[in-house]
Computed example of a mutant assay.
Amino acid sequence: MANTTPKAPVRRGRQWLWLAVSVAVLAAVVLLLFETEDTADVTRTAAPPPAPAVSVIAVSPGPARAVVSAYAELRPRWDAELRSAVSGRILAVHGGALAGARAAEGTPLFSIEKTRYETAVAAAELSLEQARLSLLQARNKVTVAQRQFARDGASPPNDLALHLPQLRIAERNVAAAKAQLQTAQRDLADCEVTAPFSGFVTRRLASLGQTVNAGDPLLQLADDRQFEITAGLSQEDWKLLQQPVTGQMAELYHRNGQPLGQARIRQGGGFLDQKTRQMRIFLEVTDPQQAVLAGDFLRVALRGRELSSTLTLPEGTLTRAGHIWLVDGAGLLQRITPRVLFRHGGNITIAAPDGTGPWLVARTPLASFLPGQRVSPKPAEG
């Protein structure tokens, strides 16, 4: 039987050997890491970081002519639904009555059957001739009676003896016959429907062969030479205008900024719009310099009175919150909330802050600006 006692000390010695080797390897790795680790040199200094550069513009207070702008719709002065004034069958629909056509004033549109109205005119002419004949007879009777009394040397007892009531009735009959003839002639003329003003036919509502009655719609006609604009202004903007506004001229601009001519202020003020609580300005446009379209949305620029002690700045200097940042003589930021008087041409005009100026205004304010922050002002280019 073999003896196994010596194997236990041998196994225990090997374990201690591996443990010693592991500790030695770990120590070597730690030393290697300390030797190869990068180091950063940190230099302490007491100097503050440089102030950020801020682009500024220098402005001084001065007078400015107010310009009040408002957006409004351009509407035709005349926009009428033409209706038939007579009854009858439509015999012809002329080219000027088709939808989209431009009809000058007096252009034929519809022809309505006129036989009954020609008969009415002839009957009215006959009635007029009969009334005139009766008038001549009445005048002759009056003349004979007057001569008879003059020959006898007597005075007529009353008007009836001179046939004067019959004369007055005959005169009234002639006047009534003339009025009936004018009515019949007007009805006959209304059988030929013409454009009452120059414009575009936006809708045709009657067709060839259709029988219409008086008052039935025929077409929709919109003026193309005379336009009207109704603009709304706040009461603050109204106070900036030169009074009275009636008769003054306003500039018209397309939405892209293209000038479209002028409009004359027909009337303005006097009452507030019940919905918007704004003052209303009524303008008229006759023969515009540029082609304008009814229904377009235009900008109306109204020249106002001259204001003193104002600053005119680019719109970009005003933040979304309505603030403007100034740089004082020590290079510190100051935030103010100005009173914007009006906007025009990409600029804003504000009431000048207290002081004599000039002021340095941040051209492009940043969201990181803080009151009292030190900056380095740089004049803005352009």
Rank of each mutant, 00 (worst) to 15 (best):
L241C: 09
E81D: 12
K141S: 14
G357Q: 00
T337R: 14
F282I: 10
P108E: 01
P217R: 06
A103Y: 07
M1D: 05
V30D: 03
L17K: 08
V10C: 02
L311W: 01
G355M: 11
Y71W: 09
L31T: 09
I57N: 05
A8I: 14
R75H: 02
N140A: 11
L307Q: 11
Q334I: 14
A46L: 10
A99R: 15
D159R: 11
G261Y: 02
R83P: 00
A101I: 09
G106M: 00
L221T: 11
Y253S: 09
Y117L: 08
G346C: 08
L252R: 05
A85Q: 12
G270I: 04
R343P: 03
L98E: 12
L167W: 14
T115M: 03
V300P: 10
T349Y: 01
P365S: 03
T4F: 15
R339E: 15
S198W: 01
I265A: 03
W238K: 07
F227I: 07
A250C: 09
P63D: 01
G88Q: 04
G268Y: 02
G268H: 06
P338R: 09
E228Y: 00
E37T: 10
V93N: 07
P156R: 03
A131I: 06
G269R: 13
T107I: 01
V193K: 06
A189H: 02
V375R: 10
A40P: 01
L219E: 05
V93I: 07
V174N: 05
V201C: 14
L221A: 09
V10W: 05
P165W: 06
T5A: 14
A184E: 06
L136K: 12
T39N: 10
L136I: 00
A362G: 01
Q267P: 01
L162K: 13
L19V: 11
F197A: 04
F282M: 06
R75I: 09
A263M: 02
V21R: 13
E192F: 00
D159A: 15
A263W: 03
T356I: 03
G13L: 14
E118W: 08
T39R: 15
P196N: 07
L260M: 14
L136F: 08
Q289E: 13
F227Y: 13
A124M: 10
W16V: 13
V292G: 11
R75P: 04
L283Y: 04
G329D: 12
R11C: 06
E81G: 13
K114L: 03
D237I: 02
K239Q: 15
R299W: 05
R77D: 05
P196F: 03
D287A: 10
P76L: 05
T317G: 12
D237G: 06
Q210Y: 02
